[in-house]
Amino acid sequence: MSSSEVRAEDPVVVDRHLCKACGICIAFCPKSVLGADGDGIAIVERPDECIRCRMCEFRCPDFAIVVRSEEDE
């Protein structure tokens, strides 16, 4: 499976259609959960490390990230 696919169990979901590859979510994630694909689009690299602090979602300028609450799963 390629790392850019959305996996049902991921705590964080990036909308590739909205992401503009600014790098903010990647730089400020306290747990280094996020990385970039070849185009700079954010991808979820280490989902198990996510503490659902939602800072990536709050600081994304493009409304491209959602952190799912545990009840959603």
């Binding site: 259609h17 909205l18 503009k20 590859a21 600014c22 790098g23 903010i24 709050f58 600081r59 994304c60 300028p61 493009d62 409304f63």
Partner: peptide, 13 residues
């Protein structure tokens, strides 16, 4: 959407 603002523009935040 997507909006017109540049990548990393704070307006969306």
């Amino acid at each position: 959407l997507p909006h017109i603002w540049c990548p990393g523009c704070g307006n969306g935040i």
